[in-house]
C-alpha cells in the first residue's frame, strides 16, 4: 500500500518533440509496493511518461529520482540494471524465439559468464544456464504458460503473447514494473486472468507496479493511487475514490458543455 517510502519521484518533467509538448510540468511519485495507475484520454502523454521513466526519452526539464538517486538522463540499459522493467502497448516480443528463450533473455543482466565460458558451454556456463532456467520455470509456472514453453512466440495468440511479455519483464526481478496497457485488446476472461497476475505479482513478489490502462473498471479495482493526465498536464492525483469524484477528470472523460 501507499504511504511508505517513495520509490520513484517525478519532479516537474516536461518533454517536447519539436513544437509538440507531450508532457508539461508533470510531478508525481510512486511509493514502494503500490500499484499506481496512469490514465488519461488518447494522446495525453501516458506512454511518453513511461518512456521518460525508463530512459528512452530525455526530458528537457525536470528530474527523476529512483531509489533516492536523482538523474536527468539515463540510458535504457541503465534503467534496466537499476531494476526497471517494462511491457509494451504493442507486444514487443522477440518473435523468432521460443517462449522460454524470450523469458531467459530477461535474465541476461544476471548472467555473468564471459565469452570464453559461453564458447565452451560446459562447467560454470552450463551451471549458470541451468540455474536461470530453473528461475524461468518458476515464472512459467506462475503465469500458467507451461504448454507453450517451446513454442515460437510469433505463432501464439495475442493474449498469450501479452502473458509471455509479462513473464519476460518478471524474469528481470524488477523493483519497478511498468505495464503499458497490459489488457488492451483482451476479452473479459483474459482481462480477469491478467488482473489476477498483476495483483499476485504485486503481493507475492512485492513488485511496485505502474500501469497504463484504458479499462476504468480494472484501473479502479486494481490500483492504490491514480494519476490522470490530459494533453500533457496532470489534472488529478489520488486514490480511486478521489479521482472518480474529481470534476476535472469527469470533464476530461465525458466532455464539458460549452
Amino acid at each position: 500500500m501507499s504511504g511508505g517510502e517513495i520509490l520513484l519521484d517525478v519532479e516537474h518533467v516536461s518533454l517536447a518533440f519539436g513544437g509538440v509538448r507531450a508532457i508539461n510540468d508533470v510531478s508525481f511519485n510512486i511509493a514502494r509496493g503500490e500499484i499506481r495507475a496512469i490514465i488519461g484520454p488518447n494522446g495525453a502523454g501516458k506512454t511518453s511518461m513511461l518512456n521518460v521513466i525508463n530512459g528512452f526519452y530525455h526530458p528537457q526539464h525536470g528530474r527523476i529520482s529512483f531509489h533516492g538517486k536523482t538523474r536527468a538522463r539515463m540510458k535504457p540499459y541503465e534503467a534496466a540494471s537499476q531494476g526497471i522493467a517494462r511491457t509494451f502497448q504493442n507486444v514487443a516480443l522477440f518473435k523468432g524465439m521460443t517462449t522460454l528463450d524470450n523469458i531467459l533473455t530477461g535474465r541476461s543482466l544476471k548472467m555473468r559468464r564471459n565469452l570464453f565460458w559461453q564458447m565452451l558451454r560446459h562447467g560454470p556456463a552450463l551451471a549458470e544456464e541451468i540455474e536461470h532456467r530453473k528461475f524461468c520455470e518458476e515464472i512459467i509456472d506462475f503465469l500458467e504458460i507451461e504448454h507453450i514453453r517451446k513454442a515460437p512466440v510469433g505463432t501464439l495468440p495475442y493474449g498469450l503473447q501479452k502473458r509471455v511479455e509479462l513473464g519476460r519483464a518478471l524474469a528481470m526481478e524488477p523493483t519497478l514494473l511498468l505495464l503499458d496497457e497490459p489488457m488492451a485488446g483482451m476479452n473479459l476472461e483474459e482481462k480477469q486472468d491478467m488482473s489476477r497476475f498483476i495483483v499476485d505479482v504485486n503481493q507475492h513478489f512485492g513488485t511496485t507496479i505502474a500501469l497504463i490502462e484504458h479499462d476504468i473498471g480494472v484501473v479502479m479495482d486494481l490500483s492504490d493511487r491514480i494519476v490522470v493526465l490530459e494533453y500533457g498536464h496532470k489534472i488529478a492525483d489520488g486514490t480511486p475514490d478521489e479521482v472518480k469524484s474529481d470534476q476535472k477528470v469527469i470533464d476530461a472523460y465525458l466532455g464539458v458543455a460549452h
Binding site: 525508463n54 528512452f56 540510458k75 535504457p76 540499459y77 534503467a79 534496466a80 540494471s81 522493467a85 517494462r86 509494451f88 514487443a92 516480443l93 522477440f94 518473435k95 523468432g96 524465439m97 528463450d101 531467459l104 533473455t105 530477461g106 535474465r107 541476461s108 543482466l109 548472467m111 559468464r113 565469452l115 559461453q118 564458447m119 565452451l120 558451454r121 556456463a125 544456464e129 519476460r168 528481470m172
Partner: peptide, 27 residues
C-alpha cells in the same frame, strides 16, 4: 555453443526487437 547461450539470445533479441532488447539491459 554461442548461439544457444546468453550471447546468442542477446543477438536474436537485437535482431527481433532492438527496443525491447535495450530494456532487457542489452547494450
Amino acid at each position: 555453443n554461442l548461439v544457444h547461450g546468453r550471447i546468442g539470445r542477446n543477438w536474436m533479441a537485437v535482431r527481433d526487437m532492438d527496443i525491447a532488447a535495450q530494456l532487457m539491459g542489452i547494450r
